[in-house]
Simulated assay, not measured.
Amino acid sequence: MIPEEETPFNLFMVAILLVAAFATAALTFFGIQEQNMNFIAIGLSFGFFLLLGVAFTRGEVLTGPGTFSQVSAAYWLGHLPFLVSMPIGGSLSLFSAPTDAHLSMVQQAPIYIQHKVNLWMAPIIETVTLLGFVAVLFIAIRRGTRLETSGALSVAITLIGTGFALLHGARTPAFFLFAFASFTVWTVIVFGHDLGWWETSLIPAGTALAVAMHKGNNHADQQIGVLESWQVILSAPEPIVYISAGIVLFEVLAVFGTMWLIVSYTVPWIKPAVEKARR
């Protein structure tokens, strides 16, 4: 059963970042085994930036409010527009075929490594880290200049959002605008509470939504659906396949979490019955 009680930690974000951390460690280990410096470099750098992103958000990405099912729903909601149809990446079926890898450093790697890096590790770690950079840069600008809140945030978003778009190639002006606009929306959702724009913190749910939109875009860009990507990463040999199994298990649990949220809000007697059973 999906835990629904409020805890000192956000269960969804703890789970997804733990799986990402184990995946970076596995990639580093695989690189050492294969004597491949590219894999070692990616594993170590991803691990470093994951820690950096958590630190830059002062750990709030792990402690913000929201049940597992609520943040799960945000996660799969972020995937939805890309898995149905995505104009910039092209129309996408859940069973479409893959294309080239997103990161050139893994283009010569086995396909299960490419998908694990491009479709899972990179979107999570890049998104958490860049959102953390926005927070730190915003604080620095706010304290070091005379700019008001909106001005300082605009400068931070402009700098980091431009970096995000360039990091992904900025192949056309439309792609650049899409990437920049996406990052701006993610930032506003994640940090709106800290800026006093709404009452409830959306850091976990907003981060999950941002990660999923980033991940969904990579799926669309490579023309591969979620189900097929699971099949590919589960084809990995031991011990890499254990990390693949952890990724798939996490996403399946997130599906059940989303379904639980939908059912609990659409079937009137579900939530009162669960609350009564806990007493």
Rank of each mutant, 00 (worst) to 15 (best):
E5W: 07
M13G: 06
M13S: 12
I16G: 01
L17I: 05
A20L: 08
G31C: 01
I32R: 15
Q33V: 01
E34D: 11
E34A: 15
N36A: 13
M37A: 13
I42A: 12
L44N: 01
S45I: 14
G47A: 08
T57V: 05
L62N: 07
L62Y: 05
T63C: 06
V71H: 09
A73D: 02
A73T: 12
A74T: 00
W76Y: 14
L77N: 00
H79W: 12
L80D: 04
P81R: 13
F82L: 04
L94S: 13
F95L: 14
S96I: 02
S96W: 03
P98C: 04
T99H: 05
D100A: 14
A101Y: 01
M105V: 11
A109G: 02
I111Q: 13
Y112R: 02
H115F: 08
H115T: 10
K116M: 12
V117W: 08
L119G: 11
I125Y: 00
I125F: 00
T127N: 08
F133R: 03
A135N: 10
A135W: 14
V136T: 08
R143Q: 15
G144R: 10
R146L: 09
S150R: 14
I157K: 13
G161C: 02
T162N: 05
G163Y: 14
F164G: 04
A170F: 02
F175G: 11
L177N: 07
F183V: 11
W186A: 15
W186S: 14
T187M: 03
V188Q: 07
F191Q: 02
F191R: 01
G196V: 11
W197R: 15
E199D: 14
P204L: 06
A205Y: 00
T207V: 10
V211M: 07
V211P: 00
H214W: 03
H214A: 11
N217P: 00
Q222S: 09
W230V: 02
P237A: 10
S244T: 07
A245T: 10
G246M: 15
G246W: 09
E251R: 05
V255K: 02
I262N: 07
I262T: 13
V267C: 03
P268I: 03
P272I: 12
A273M: 12
K276P: 08
